[in-house]
Amino acid sequence: MRLELKKTFLSKRGWWIYFLALGPVAITVLHWLVEARLGRGAGNRHSIGEDSIIFAGMFLFYYLRAGIFFGAMGIFSNLFRAEMLEKTLHYYFLTPLRRELLVAGKYLAGLIVAVVLFGSSVVLAFLTIGRHFGASWTDYLLHGPGLHQLGAYFLVTVLACVGYGAVFLLSGLLFKNPMIPAAVVWVWENLNPFLPSLLKKISVIFYLKSLCPVEVPIPPPFNVMVVDADPTPFWVATPGLLAISLILLVYAAATARTTEISYSD
């Protein structure tokens, strides 16, 4: 775990993941500074509610569909694939360590990195997007729905890292080119709003969206193509996602148990 954390956190290959995670924070900090400067003279140009919807849109369309998805792809599919590229996987395989533990250790290390990066990014972006409202933003956080929303967004981020992490860890183990399954998953996840309600349920984003605290209105002309489906209750969505991730991890562990490595292939 220690080794993996060090490798994954300070990976030269993963510089772009930091960009993915920190980009929105930079934008919300800029928003805070600009609005605070403008607000001193003319008052705020928008309301807390508008910022809350903007954050919900950013969370759904950037974090879930792009940032966390591609970030998890970068972190988790590299856990085994990078070792194969650097021809170091056999060192792990030769150590007196059960393969299942190796998979679990690598997954946990990846999960910690993903949650730290994207979880902190979501929390910081949420806290700074409305900071320019001053005391009323603090009031919204402490006495209004703010803290509940923040908790929900953080939980969804963790679940997204858990779900996508398991998918990409398995694809990194099974496929020589994990980008092909990743592309298929990405297209499927992005088509989700337009799928019939039965097919909607065979995706990660559907359950994550059900847990989001603020609903995002879909702009025209796409709104006419959206198929409505009842959101999944919390007690189904959360354990459901965790159970699916566990199944994928168990399968990954079973695959790793029989894996043989030949770098010449």
Partner: peptide
């Protein structure tokens, strides 16, 4: 992702 990032800039900064 760059297009998504641009959309975030547009949304947050109006």
């Amino acid at each position: 992702v760059a297009a998504g990032f641009g959309a975030v800039v547009n949304g947050v900064e109006r």
